[in-house]
């Protein structure tokens, strides 16, 4: 038996796919933005000499690194509101969870990059009279940034794919829309293949760009 493909009937809902794709992009970049902020703060806390900050940052990181994102989404949407009383908007729950999740990983990536820079770099900066802040900004961070860029982009690519999980709390992203179209057309093969194709179309240029940037940054090595 040969399956007769019919993308035409599915493509009639292209506006749903495009809208879903837009929502996925918004949640990706939104959560990456807040994730960077959370990651930087957590990283600073981890590197601080203040013990209490250290412990708090670690606890946060381990909770979010050691539970599945799906579990976190369900917990924030269904459980957290009961804990504090009141209800939570599913979009807020989705963005909050995605940002906290990726922030925990970013923090570890940033921290790893900073501590991987040779101690001698900081000493050389200090020896010409730089303050700790100047040394961090001008000498340590630029080198650390370059070193963490591949892992950072990698984590961000994963983050884009992870946004598909917000469909379980009814956020109308690309995965959610594909399910809607499938419901309308009874064409799962076409609906879900188109969805997969759109994810690839978004991420392939990104991973290629990442490789290109990485090669360009290697100039000084």
């Amino acid at each position: 038996m040969t399956y007769s493909w019919d993308f035409h009937s599915v493509w009639q809902y292209y506006d749903l796919f495009l809208w879903g794709l837009w929502i996925s992009v918004v949640y990706t970049f939104g959560s990456i933005f807040f994730g960077i902020v959370i990651g930087l703060v957590t990283c600073a806390a981890r590197l601080s000499s203040w013990k209490l900050l250290n412990v708090i940052a670690r606890i946060y990181q381990e909770i979010f690194r050691c539970t599945p994102l799906l579990v976190q989404l369900l917990w924030f949407y269904y459980a957290f509101p009961l804990l504090v009383g009141g209800s939570m908007d599913n979009r807020v729950a989705a963005l909050l969870t995605l940002a906290l999740y990726v922030g925990a990983f970013y923090a570890e990536i940033f921290r790893g990059g900073i501590v991987s820079i040779d101690r001698g770099q900081h000493e050389a900066a200090s020896a010409i009279g730089m303050s700790p802040g100047q040394s961090m900004r001008r000498i340590i961070l630029p080198q650390a940034l370059k070193r963490v860029l591949p892992s950072f982009i990698n984590q961000s690519v994963i983050q884009f794919k992870n946004t598909s999980l917000v469909s379980v709390i009814s956020v109308a992203d690309l995965a959610y829309m594909a399910a809607v179209v499938n419901g309308q057309t009874y064409r799962p093969l076409e609906s879900y293949t188109l969805m997969a194709g759109l994810y690839i179309a978004m991420l392939l240029p990104l991973t290629q760009a990442a490789d290109w940037i990485e090669r360009r940054l290697r100039v000084s090595d």
Partner: peptide
């Protein structure tokens, strides 16, 4: 440290800066 320079066993040049930038970094920034 601004008036007392130091040279290290392992050079510790700034690898992300050119030779010229390594040398101008102190005068410009500090």
């Amino acid at each position: 440290r601004r008036h007392v320079g130091m040279v290290f066993q392992h050079f510790n040049l700034f690898p992300h800066k050119t030779v010229l930038e390594n040398v101008t970094e102190g005068p410009i920034v500090v």
